[in-house]
Amino acid sequence: MAVRRQKKTRKMRGHRTMSWGAKTQHRDRGKEGGRQVGMHKHKWSWLVKYGKDWYGKHGFVNPTSEEKTIITLRQLNEMITNGKIQVEMKDGKAYVDLTKLGYEKLLGGGKVSMPLVVRVAEATELAKSKIEKAGGQLVLEQKE
């Protein structure tokens, strides 16, 4: 068998069908997958119905970004009043340990209706000032 020095595809550039005959031949996915042609034209109705995420960017996640589980003061206040978070009452203050509940950061959106003593790894300055205005205290845990 002779060794082909130059690939056939390099010779056939500019020729519409690459010598495969009809323009639809050798454009399908075959057994190994690959590209799917005609999605913007004659298979558009299939795409609209079944392939909503066919076009656009997908899947890249920046490896340097870090996601933290956060909670706002509004959410914390609602959970305490609804009874979803059990608090320990001492000296008229509610003690909440957010690290045990799985939260890493406390944000300052919303209002605080009672004096709270909150234990958390991180908090914003606004959250700290709102808790202290309500007569509570913010205890920041040291990161290991």
Rank of each mutant, 00 (worst) to 15 (best):
V48E: 14
K105F: 03
G108N: 05
L126C: 14
A2N: 10
G109P: 10
K57A: 15
I85K: 01
H40G: 14
Q36I: 13
R119E: 14
K68F: 08
I131D: 00
R119M: 11
T24V: 12
S129L: 12
S65W: 14
M79P: 01
T69D: 08
W46R: 13
R13G: 02
V61T: 13
Q36Y: 15
I71W: 03
K7L: 03
D91Y: 13
K111Y: 15
H58L: 10
Q25Y: 11
K23G: 06
W46T: 12
G38H: 06
H42R: 15
E122Y: 03
D28N: 05
A22K: 12
V48W: 12
Y50V: 10
M89G: 07
R27F: 06
L98H: 01
V117L: 08
G136A: 04
T17P: 01
G14Q: 04
R16L: 11
Q6D: 07
K128L: 08
Y55I: 13
L116C: 05
K57C: 12
A123Q: 02
V37F: 15
Q86V: 15
E67F: 15
K49F: 05
I70L: 09
E132P: 01
I80R: 01
E144P: 03
G38W: 07
Q25C: 11
K128H: 05
S65V: 10
Q36K: 10
R29C: 11
K84S: 08
A121Y: 06
V87P: 01
T69Q: 09
V37K: 09
K8C: 05
G51I: 07
G136Y: 00
W20D: 08
G108H: 03
